[in-house]
């Protein structure tokens, strides 16, 4: 078997008396879309946060491409090529699309203008942003310089996904990417997810939307009571099975591969 992109073993995270993650495992394989589902409060976002450095686990180990890592902040994870599309998108409404794609990793001009005056290379940033949006078929936006607040919900999601896809070298985490979108816009985002997977970048998809999960996921990680209950192949089970496992109405299948 190839080395998993992410492998987490025995992760524990406690907040006072509350155990958010209880000796949970996690695995993301190369090139796959792994959906993470679970009831509210099951700790599915906690486990994902532990993987990307947003929370620091109390126990357990995380291996990225076989090498143990300890992230202290999401910025460290980002420096390794791990991108997160947050549910609230983390975009600055008044800044332009190009500015938003580069926040925190701007390109400076070559030579003394960049080194001493620290001048941004806006043409280079705009060109790159336009290329990335075009690659994902999102260039229906009028201008790369237009502020993000003038975009529709789906377009904003597109910008956030394009930003993640442009900089991710390891994998992308998407937190409820279709939750706030209409039918057509959700469809577009699902196509984006498949496009990104086609480029070989694995995706962790946190979602409540069973039809969307079953449509795009290669494997489904079912989280229950703070730990991984099982992972299933969406082709072998129905949505009602998944919901039954997730809520404890049905015993999970015996696990083969971890």
């Amino acid at each position: 078997m190839t080395t998993p992109v992410v492998q987490a073993r025995g992760i524990v995270k406690r907040y006072g008396h509350v155990t958010a993650i209880d000796h949970s495992d996690f695995e993301l394989r190369p090139g796959e879309v792994l959906a993470v589902i679970g009831d509210n409060g099951a700790g599915k976002s906690s486990i994902v946060k532990a993987i990307c450095g947003a929370t620091i686990p109390d126990e357990g180990e995380i291996l990225i491409e076989g090498k143990p890592v300890k992230f202290n902040s999401p910025i460290e994870a980002r420096d390794m090529g791990i991108e997160i599309v947050y549910q609230n998108l983390a975009l600055s409404p008044a800044l332009s699309i190009a500015d938003n794609m580069f926040t925190g990793r701007e390109i400076r001009k070559e030579g003394w203008m960049g080194k001493i005056l620290r001048m941004l290379d806006k043409p280079a940033m705009e060109k790159f942003a336009r290329e990335k949006l075009t690659e994902l078929g999102l260039m229906t936006v009028q201008s790369i310089k237009q502020p993000v607040e003038t975009l529709s919900g789906g377009q904003r999601q597109g910008v956030a996904v394009a930003r993640a896809a442009a900089f991710a070298t390891k994998f992308i985490i998407m937190d409820e990417p279709t939750a706030a979108l209409g039918v057509k816009e959700s469809r577009k985002v699902l196509e984006l997810i498949q496009d990104v997977r086609a480029r070989g970048i694995p995706i962790i998809l946190i979602s409540h939307n069973m039809p969307h999960v079953f449509e795009v996921a290669d494997r489904i990680h079912i989280h229950r009571l703070g730990k991984r209950l099982c992972t299933i192949d969406p082709k072998d089970y129905t949505m009602s099975d998944a919901v039954a496992f997730m809520t404890g109405a049905k015993e999970p299948p015996a696990q083969d591969a971890a």
Binding site: P74, I84, N88, L89, A90, L91, S92, L95, T103, G104
Partner: peptide
């Protein structure tokens, strides 16, 4: 504009 978003986007 939005401090939380700025934080999350790596500033």
């Amino acid at each position: 504009d939005d401090k939380e978003a700025a934080d999350l986007s790596g500033i």
